[in-house]
Design a protein around this nucleic acid. Structure first.
Lengths: 236, 236
DNA sequence: TTTACTGTGCCGACTGGACGGTAAAGTAAT
DNA sequence: ATTACTTTACCGTCCAGTCGGCACAGTAAA
């Protein structure tokens, strides 16, 4: 299926795509002395957050990690908040791109986008996109910085619900988000096997679109003996 | 139903709940051993985190907020990590208590604990328990501090699944967790109305226990026209 | 080609403030 | 006086942000 859509870092000949306002570099060629160190610094920042948590994200740490001096970092990001903002924007952008890519790879049926969302979230866990969460923590400090994220989340959900009945979409959406968060914070109570099982269920639900919704509403008094027991295996 | 189980803070004849400093602080009786001060400081710490994010949680800020000096804080909590730990423990403890309380108020039927979990999580949002999340962010920095939380989470889920088929429990659990997180971080795409709708659905699913699981598995080809449309209103 | 000038990208020492933590002295109930 | 708690003052460290400087590339006049 070739789902490799990148890890959120610069693993392609991308010429620093997303420019953050006030960036002091209108000249695009930029080729002069060094390759684009901006992306390298963002990568470094990601790594730092990943390894030490948001609290360890200092300019010096980023500089060291990126193999430059602090001045170098400050040159590209006039302030720490600018760095954070750039990280967030790159992440959102990457996520949007990845979602689009996965969506495109799926047949155009109801729940397509929702299914893509689930798959993409899981992929994000398998790869090392774990920055998002660590970053999210960092953002918690500067609450205004995560505004773009909120906006992105909103728009995203709006699209997911066009395909699928609201309750259904919301359920899958929330569960996916919950799984993602829990795994990210390493608070998940699931064994790998259970996680896989859950993911399969979510994908299934996204695929089936409205079916489950109907079933849920209809199942007011289903006799319990009818329970399917075939799904019992994983246990820590 | 009497679900008032507290807000996680000292909800008793507390005199100075949230003081904004400046005030000369009317020297209350100050009875001999005043075990209140500890709780008051934890309350203050909660408030600080709530308002400014985890990054603003400094000893000075807590002290000012609590109407004491920094030394006063340091006396009760020899180190900042001790303060964090205390906050976490109080939170977990409170949560455990609340869950037990809600559970007790429900009829002893399958999915009882799960339903209580859902209801309690929502209640936590309605009241101002929002600290948990902010705190959770803080913990992200000192990863070892949130170990007790992880432990608690694990045990909690284990209990929820005793009652209900795994997939069902996992689904409700994750969705609830997702909802909680999103609302907490103010990233939720839902209108209040939609949120209420989702909550109702989750409670319903928890109640019905195994029923939905059966339905999900069975619903391979349910005609979409059977969808209940009665739930369409909220829209931002 | 040489020289002189300009701008870009980066370096790294330094500063000033914030913050965690310490210690000694003070206050009041017992 | 002893104990429980609080305050005031201070220290050391960390860190964002500043600033003067350096190297190199391009430009162009000589």
């Amino acid at each position: 299926m070739e789902l490799h859509v990148g890890t959120g870092r610069a693993d392609q000949p991308v010429q620093y795509s997303n420019q953050v306002s006030s960036s002091p570099m209108p000249k695009l060629p930029k080729t002069r002395g060094r390759p684009n160190s901006r992306e390298a610094m963002l990568d470094a920042a990601q790594d730092v957050v990943l390894e030490g948590g948001a609290g360890k994200l200092t300019l010096d740490a980023v500089a060291k990690r990126a193999g430059v001096s602090k001045g170098g970092v400050m040159y590209n990001f006039p302030t720490k908040e600018a760095l954070l903002k750039a990280m967030v924007e790159r992440l959102v952008e990457h996520n949007r791109h990845a979602h689009a890519q996965v969506t495109a790879s799926l047949p155009d049926r109801p729940g397509r986008s929702l299914k893509a969302y689930v798959m993409n979230s899981v992929r994000a866990l398998d790869v090392d996109d774990r920055v998002s969460g660590a970053l999210l923590a960092a953002l918690n400090s500067d609450r205004n910085v995560l505004a773009p994220v909120a906006e992105y989340f909103n728009g995203r959900f709006a699209k997911l619900t066009q395909d699928v009945p609201f309750e259904q979409a919301a359920l899958v959406y929330l569960a996916t988000e919950g799984l993602w968060t829990q795994e990210l914070l390493q608070l998940s109570p699931f064994t790998p096997r259970q996680r896989a099982q859950v993911v399969r269920m979510l994908v299934r639900m996204a695929e089936q679109g409205a079916a489950v919704e109907t079933a849920v509403v209809a199942s007011k008094a289903v006799p319990r003996k009818a329970i399917s027991n075939k799904e019992k295996k994983g246990k820590s």
